[in-house]
Every structure is written in C-alpha cells, then in structure tokens.
Nucleic acid binder design. Structure first.
Length: 207
DNA sequence: GATTGGATCTACT
DNA sequence: GTAGATCCAATCG
C-alpha cells in the first residue's frame, strides 16, 4: 500500500519553512523498526526558523545539540526534553540556515498494533497526539537524530489525497514569539493535540 | 561543578 | 486548572 506513494525528495524541504510546515499536512511518515513498519499521516506541525526566532533552539547560536538543524534539508532533528520526551523535527531551508518543522501529531495508519503495545493505550486517536507521544508510539529516539527522511529507517511520502483543510495558530509551549502563527493543523481532526484545543492557543483559526 | 528551565504528558482536584 | 515527574543541555561561577 505504501509503495504506491513516492518518497518526498530533499528539494521539497529546501524551501521556506512555513511552506514546508503547511504542505507536510496530509503526508505520511513511515518508520521501519526491524521488520515492522509503523506509519501515520501528519495532521499537526510547527515551524521553528533561524537564530532570530526566540523559540528556536538555534536562537543562541550553534551548539552540539542543534548542529543538525544547520545542516542539509531533508534530515531528522531529534532531541530530548522534559526528562521524558523525544521530539521529531524535519530540517528545512538551505544548508547553513537553522530551521525545522516540528511534527506534533499523526493519524495512525499502519502498525497500530505495535503503537498500542508501546503506548499502553488503546485509544487510536491518542496514540500519536502530541510530539512526545508520537515519538514514543513510533519508537523514535536519539539514535534517529541526523537520519535522512528518505532513508531505510525513516521515510516521508507524498499523499494522493487532496490537501486537507488547514488551520493555523500560535505555537504551543512557546511564550515569546507566540504571536506568529507558525502552527499548522488539519481542522477538526481528532488526532491533533486536543488538550490544547479548548485554550486560546488552539482556538484561533484562519484558513 | 552546580543550577535552572524546558518545542511535554498524565493524573488528580 | 494545576502540579508533579524527570533529566539533559546550556549557562554561570
């Protein structure tokens, strides 16, 4: 089923981060874990762009942690935070420009059984809801940092369906720079990080 | 070497 | 709506 779709080439990511973040919605992420394939459809993203962006890890310049963001587009930037959570990002823009798209939520597509096993919940809508949850469900950890998004372990595919209806808002968990509408999500989708939907962070919608 | 805060999640009130 | 878990990375002395 998945192989009827094409893997997204690196030049897709070598563009404006905001365009990439928006256009990633509806596309598919697949992770190979041994002989298992786990995949999901992207339903929520956020953009982090450059040293000028106070919420971006590159805000204070290049560090050993964020070097991947400065590298070539089309690679995974994975980091650990809050003591428990890995975050999955796709590096964007030209090499040398520190920018990335954070993948915040997926709609589970394949390998749901393994996701349930990992997460310990049977609610499909919750399996990949939130950036820390989806990495746990897919088995993504620090060893994925710097891997190609067209590689054997992680791959991202175009979708055949039309682009879904997109809403935007300020970014979650970000104080400074919140006024920028750099979060994108599929409107009314049950798998977006809904625990924020009732707050002002999730309510502000445009098309 | 020590301290501080974080692109979070869950459970409980 | 709020607190606690949990630990790494960056910053400071």
């Amino acid at each position: 089923m998945l192989d009827i779709y094409d893997i997204i080439p690196p030049d897709f990511y070598a563009r404006q981060t905001l365009r990439v973040a928006r256009e990633l919605l509806g596309r598919y992420v697949a992770v190979r874990d041994g002989r298992r394939i786990l995949s999901g459809r992207i339903v929520e993203t956020e953009a982090y762009i450059g040293e000028e962006d106070p919420a971006c890890h590159a805000h204070r310049g290049r560090t050993p942690r964020n070097v991947v963001m400065y590298g070539a587009p089309g690679y995974a930037y994975v980091y650990f935070t809050y003591g428990n959570h890995f975050m999955l990002n796709f590096v964007t823009e030209e090499e040398g420009v520190p920018a990335a798209v954070l993948i915040r939520a997926l709609e589970p597509v394949a390998g749901v059984r393994w996701m349930i096993e990992r997460r310990g919940t049977t609610d499909v809508h919750r399996l990949c809801r939130g950036p820390g949850n989806l990495t746990a469900a897919l088995g993504i950890d620090g060893s994925c940092n710097g891997l190609s998004l067209g590689g054997p372990r992680i791959s991202v595919y175009h979708c055949a369906e039309p682009t879904p209806l997109v809403s935007t808002s300020g970014r979650v968990g970000v104080n400074e720079g919140f006024e920028r509408s750099w979060r994108f999500f599929v409107r009314d989708h049950p798998c977006i990080s809904a625990y924020r939907m009732g707050t002002k962070a999730g309510r502000k919608q445009t098309t």
